[in-house]
Nucleic acid binder design. Sequence first.
DNA 1: CAAATAAGTCAACATGACTGACATAACCTC
DNA 2: GAGGTTATGTCAGTCATGTTGACTTATTTG
Lengths: 167, 167
Amino acid sequence: MRSKAELGRADAVACVELLFFAYRDFTGDADAVLEEYGFGRAHHRVLHFVSRNPGLRVAQLLDILKITKQSLARVLKQLIDEGFIAQREGAADRRERRLYVTAKGGKLTHKLTTLQVRRIEAAFAQSGPETETATRRFLLAMIAEPDRARVEALIGLSDRGATKDPI
Amino acid sequence: MRSKAELGRADAVACVELLFFAYRDFTGDADAVLEEYGFGRAHHRVLHFVSRNPGLRVAQLLDILKITKQSLARVLKQLIDEGFIAQREGAADRRERRLYVTAKGGKLTHKLTTLQVRRIEAAFAQSGPETETATRRFLLAMIAEPDRARVEALIGLSDRGATKDPI
DNA sequence: CAAATAAGTCAACATGACTGACATAACCTC
DNA sequence: GAGGTTATGTCAGTCATGTTGACTTATTTG
């Protein structure tokens, strides 16, 4: 029992390690499946965000992922060439290449998401369902502004709607 | 209000994204400092775990990091050459090269840890101190066995003792 | 002494980041 | 309509960090 609401350094260090191991295993499930397709985590991120935001522009995706367009180009090209992602000209601005997952891409994304969702659900089942709200508030608070607001809006939307799965 | 204690898929997907963004920003603070030293995240991980477990054997470190010894060799050699980590022969078994942070290495580790701890503390301050226990339980539950037990023991120890900072 | 173990090393390779420079098409503004 | 801006794509080279496979050395253990 510490007197203050403040964390001891040791407690915070524990969280550092928890985050490291939790994230490593969180991504591990999907990594294994991706390997079968010859894809990596970079492909997964692209699939995920395109699937979640159909019609996403390349520039927006770059902003979300915080990588350079040269880095994105390689994985995006592969995903397009192999038919997981499709591009369509923007209706208003024909310079834009709006990104969409194809049926094939949506299927893979769904498979990957399901793995991650399962681990999260299993974790909450074990830690107690009441830990969900707290965890979400903490994770959101960990995100640096100005992304926090954007993420809040992103997940805020999906919280309400029906299961708007990408496929 | 969902009728069950079960998460909706949309809620779990929200957690997927929260984890992605939270982890990205969590590591970002330290990455910036590491760059000044010409180090990367790999060096940070080595420093962290050696600092937390003085006298760690190479084989144990490999097991924690789940990388090959050839991968470790490169970063470890740099850290040793530049005086951040020291090796000492095992007392009982002279084949072992027990790893320790030097004063220099401890200082850097402390600096990096402080950055991460600050973000975590700021996050809890914002999400409410009552979210701490819940978050820690969730993160622990996210870790796959058999690591979960090991991590539990690791942080369990440090939870109690006085601030056993590595330097 | 032989075998197993702890660690180190050499070489080659893959992935996914990066910088910098430049190309193309479409839009916008004067 | 010319000229600048924007969205995107691409070429070329580099770096960090991971991989496999093969082999060495020192030491402990059976």
